[in-house]
Amino acid sequence: MKSHQPKLKTQLFSCGFFRQCGQTVLSPTATGTTPPLPLTHTHTHTSTTCESSTSSSSSATSQSFTQWRFSLPTPTSTPNTPPPTDTHTHTHTHNPPPLPSPFTIPNLQELFHVSDIQLTTDFNAALNLLERSLVPNPPQDQPPCPPNLMRALICNLREAKPATKILFALCLSEANRRVAVEAGAVGAVVESAPELDGAPAERALAALELMCTVPEGAEEVRAHALAVPVMVTVMGKTGARGKEYAIGVLAVIYGGDVGEQLTAPPEEVARAVELALQGECSARGKRKGAQLLKMLQHLSHPHAHVTS
C-alpha cells in the first residue's frame, strides 16, 4: 500500500503596518495516518514564504509598510538567480543610496563672495547657500556683507522665504547692521512688516530692533513716517516675540530726541502698548513695555514727575 505523503502548503498572510507576517504551516491534504513533516525537514518543494519581523519596536515604527521577503537556500548565501515567483510574489524594493550632504561654505568671507557672484545667475541658489552656511550658527563677528548682496536680500523680504532668516543672522553682527542700514533695510522692514506673518514677521522685527542699536539705524527708524503706526499694528497680530521686538523699536523711537517727528500721539501709543501687554507677551517684552509706558507718560505729561 502506498503511503500518502503530506504536501507542504504555504499560507501567506497580509502584512499590515507594524504587524508581523504569518508563518509557514503544514497542511496535509491526504487522510492517511502518516504524521505531518516537521518544519525543519528538508523538502524539494520550493515556495515563497514571509519571514517574521525580528526588528525592535523602535525600528518598526520607522517603516511605512512591512516588506515581503523570500526564502533563501541558506541563511548566509545570496543566490544569483531571482527567487521563484507565483501569483503572490511581491517585488522587493531597495532603499536608494543616501543623498550627499548639502554644500556649505564655513568661511564667511568666501561665502559672501560666492553668494554675491551667484546673484547674477541664480538668486535662489545664493539664498539657499547663505541659509545653509550662515543661519544655523551665525557668529557675531562677521566680515562685511557685500552691499549688492544686502540690497538683493532686502528687496525680497516678502517673496523669498529665507530672506528674513538671513537678514536676522547678518544683523547679529554690528558691522552688518550698518551695511543693512546703508542698503535701506530699515525702510524695507517697516514697509514689509504688515504683509509678513508668523516667524518671518518676528525675524524681520528682530533684525529691525538690532539695526536700531546703531545710531544710523535709530535715526532712520525715527525719521520713517510709517514706523510708529506699523509697530502699533504688528503688536496686535504677532506672537509674544513679535510684540517684544515691536515694543523695542517703539522704545527707540520715543526714547530719543523725537521732536516733531512723531506721527502718533503718545497717549494712543500707550493704549496700544497696554492692550498688547494684556495678551501673550514674553517676560522681556513686558519689561520693555513697562519702560516704554513710562516714556510715553512723560511725553504726555512732561511736568508730572518734576518732584522726585
Rank of each mutant, 00 (worst) to 15 (best):
Ser3Gly: 04
Leu8Met: 02
Arg19Val: 06
Arg19Lys: 10
Cys21Gln: 11
Gly22Gln: 09
Thr24Ser: 11
Leu26Ile: 15
Thr31His: 12
Thr33Ala: 11
Pro38Gln: 08
Leu39Lys: 14
Leu39Asn: 14
Thr40Pro: 03
His41Gln: 12
Thr42Tyr: 06
Ser47Gly: 09
Cys50Met: 08
Glu51Asn: 04
Ser53Arg: 02
Ala60Phe: 08
Ala60Cys: 08
Trp68Lys: 10
Leu72Met: 13
Pro73Tyr: 01
Pro83Gly: 00
Asp86His: 05
His90Phe: 06
Thr91Val: 10
His94Leu: 03
Pro96Lys: 04
Pro96Ala: 06
Pro97Cys: 00
Ser101Lys: 14
Phe103Asp: 01
Ile105Gln: 03
Pro106Ile: 04
Asn107Arg: 04
Phe112Arg: 09
Val114Ala: 08
Ile117Cys: 07
Asp122Phe: 00
Asp122Glu: 07
Leu129Ser: 13
Leu130Gln: 12
Leu130Asp: 09
Leu130Lys: 10
Glu131Gly: 06
Leu134Cys: 03
Pro136Asn: 10
Asn137His: 14
Asn137Val: 12
Pro138Cys: 05
Gln140Ser: 04
Pro143His: 00
Pro144Ser: 10
Cys145Val: 15
Pro147Trp: 02
Asn148Val: 15
Arg151Met: 01
Asn156Ile: 05
Leu157Thr: 10
Thr164Val: 13
Thr164Phe: 05
Leu170Lys: 07
Glu174Pro: 07
Arg177Pro: 07
Val179Ser: 11
Ala183Ile: 11
Gly184Pro: 11
Ala185Glu: 08
Ala188Asp: 00
Ala188Arg: 14
Val190Lys: 12
Ala193Met: 06
Leu196Ser: 08
Glu202Tyr: 03
Ala204Asn: 15
Ala207Ile: 05
Gly217Ala: 00
Glu219Trp: 04
Glu220Trp: 05
Arg222Asn: 03
Ala225His: 07
Leu226Ile: 00
Ala227Phe: 07
Ala227Val: 05
Met235Asp: 03
Ala240Val: 03
Ala240Asp: 11
Ala246Lys: 09
Val249Met: 03
Val249Arg: 04
Gly255Trp: 09
Val258Ala: 13
Gln261Glu: 15
Ala264Asp: 06
Ala264Gln: 14
Val269Lys: 08
Val269Arg: 08
Arg271Met: 07
Val273His: 03
Leu275Ala: 12
Gln278Ile: 06
Gly279Gln: 06
Glu280Asn: 06
Ala283Lys: 06
Lys288Asn: 11
Ala290Arg: 02
Leu293His: 12
Leu293Tyr: 12
Ser300Val: 05
Ser300Ile: 05
Ala304Ile: 01
His305Pro: 01
